[in-house]
């Protein structure tokens, strides 16, 4: 990560690894996130069972050595379903974050660079999006334009835009008054060039931290949407849909409702810990304010 050495609080490159290894949140968060991502990647090549192969004779089995997390109402292996479901959750949340960053950061940086009317209009627009209940609007978007992973991504992504716009603007506004920006302006650089060369590299830490938070929220939102049947469609497994299907079978097979939920909790927890850890590592000033 390129950090401008004139920014107080930017970590010295040499000590970073040592600090990272001493930060418990960061370590645990990293381990969990890597493990979940690893399982999701592994599912592309191998899962314990083929989930497109239905063995109705094996339906609603409890935990066993054959099926460590049991089987669902169609005899599919829960562990395999969760592994492939991780793929879906991560993909939806990551792309939604990228949409939010891709649109929100330029807007926020632009507002900070121009100020005045541009800033005012963009920020009022931001407030407008915030006034819409995000989850309800996402439900509306997916329900009206058709359920599915793609529309879920768009619906969640739209509500990431104002979040990143706000963070980028606030970050950029704190950098603009600095001397080295003044020097760059005196050197005749345009506002756009300054934003790209000096502002953006200095708010990367902020954006990265916000990215992990939105990533975690995206996983929760995707789970909610697919619980309502508006996310990824069968046969693609998703954690939310697994929970929905488990609800009606709770009396006979309570384990069905347990593991997909745990998968969500562990993933979100890992990302939140990672975000907290990153914030401490990248910007010690923020740590003191906590």
């Amino acid at each position: 990560m390129s950090m401008d050495p004139t920014i107080p609080g930017a970590p010295p490159e040499r000590g970073f690894l040592r600090l990272a290894l001493a930060n418990r949140s960061f370590l645990i968060g990293c381990a969990i996130t890597l493990a979940v991502a690893g399982l999701a990647l592994l599912s592309f090549f191998w899962t314990p069972y083929d989930i497109t192969h239905l063995t109705v004779a094996d339906r609603l089995k409890g935990l066993s050595t054959n099926h460590p997390l049991g089987t669902d109402h169609l005899g599919r292996d829960i562990l395999s379903m969760i592994m492939i479901g991780a793929r879906n959750s991560i993909a939806v949340a990551i792309v939604a974050v990228l949409i939010g960053m891709g649109i929100g950061v330029p807007l926020g940086a632009w507002a900070a660079a121009r100020g005045g009317l541009v800033d005012e209009v963009l920020m009022r627009f931001n407030d407008l999006v915030f006034a819409f209940p995000a989850l309800l609007s996402a439900i509306m978007i997916t329900a009206i334009f058709g359920p599915g992973a793609l529309n879920a991504i768009i619906a969640i992504g739209i509500f990431n835009v104002p979040v990143f716009a706000r963070v980028a603007r606030a970050g950029a506004l704190s950098i603009w008054p600095r001397e080295f920006i003044l020097a760059a302006r005196a050197a005749g650089k345009s506002r756009t060039l300054i934003t790209i060369e000096h502002i953006l590299p200095n708010i990367t830490a902020l954006l990265l931290v916000q990215g992990t938070i939105q990533f975690a929220l995206g996983i929760l939102a995707e789970a909610g949407l697919s619980y309502l049947g508006l996310g990824a469609q069968p046969p693609m497994p998703s954690w939310g849909r697994m929970l929905f299907e488990a609800q009606t079978r709770m009396i006979v097979a309570p384990h069905l409702a347990l593991f997909p939920g745990l998968a969500i909790v562990v993933t979100v927890l890992g990302l939140n810990l990672l975000g907290d850890g990153l914030r401490d590592l990248l910007d010690p000033r923020l740590r003191r304010e906590r």
Partner: peptide, 14 residues
């Protein structure tokens, strides 16, 4: 920290 990570509808199922 764990509580923040729990989806309310899963908690409802529990």
């Amino acid at each position: 920290q764990v509580g923040v990570a729990i989806p309310n509808f899963w908690f409802a199922l529990l």
